[in-house]
Design a protein around this nucleic acid. Sequence first.
DNA 1: AAGACAAGCAACCGCGACTCT
DNA 2: TAGAGTCGCGGTTGCTTGTCT
Length: 298
Amino acid sequence: MDMKRRLNNNNNDNNDDDMDLRRGPWTVDEDLTLINYIANHGEGRWNSLARSAGLKRTGKSCRLRWLNYLRPDVRRGNITLEEQLLILELHASWGNRWSKIAQYLPGRTDNEIKNYWRTRVQKHAKQLKCDVNSKQFKDTMRFLWMPRLVERIQAAAATVTTAATAATATGNIMNMSNNNFGYATPENSSTGTSSDSFVTQDYCNNNNNVHVGNNNNNNNSDPSSDYYHQQGNNNNQVSFMDCITSPSSMSLFPHQEMDFQAMELPNTPWINNPSTFSNFWNDENMLLLQNLGCGDNM
DNA sequence: AAGACAAGCAACCGCGACTCT
DNA sequence: TAGAGTCGCGGTTGCTTGTCT
């Protein structure tokens, strides 16, 4: 599939003489070309790499494709509960420093995290007519969404054995042994203590094999299907909405005493730092939120 | 069955920072 | 030191797919 060319706003990295620079989704051939070239010559110097490899792409495009998709250690699949929680924590600390946040989520790219934030979190702030940076929204995140995530994580931990058995039996679990969730912290590994109380195996994610070239379907000869993998219908996915609409969620309403310590939570920034987030969006919670005043500030 | 709409995400863009000569 | 080239980040766009009517 070829994309209609957008207006070229003279990107200053695009000094490539030719007008036939390709844009849009990458083809399998292009992917293989890039992979092979990097395997032989290494990465870096992307503009010259693009030329040398014979790719009609900008160096920038090649870099992005490699880093966000083709790199062997890119972790594919849905954002897990633990990752969601960590993203919230880290965003509370650093804001939109996506690349920084991504450093703490091995295999996840800044682009993926950014997309997660924009599609899930900001969407719901918008639904609540809440500014994502408003105190109300942050309190909601802090007192409702994050505890709920923790609850879900703990519930998952409690049933992980059963789930793993069932999933294995149905072939839905893949590479569980490679799926341990450890938080590597670039500066200080001890800051990732939250992993202690987290599920260490991600049985929610049935789509985490690393694929190169096409999305989860290496036998698909249709290039157009290679670049937009099937979304949704992932029965093992614990979705964002699942996380915030669990039947047990009522127990976490803020007018009840929330015993964070009893939750065996690590000493995470979102507990100690008021500028953090939480989120929940079922009907009752929406009502509660509105009663709390969220939405009045816009 | 088909069109409209929404969701999700890959890819692009602009720009500032960095590196090299 | 200046300027050109390159890199990397954050914001945005637009395409594909799923869902709803």
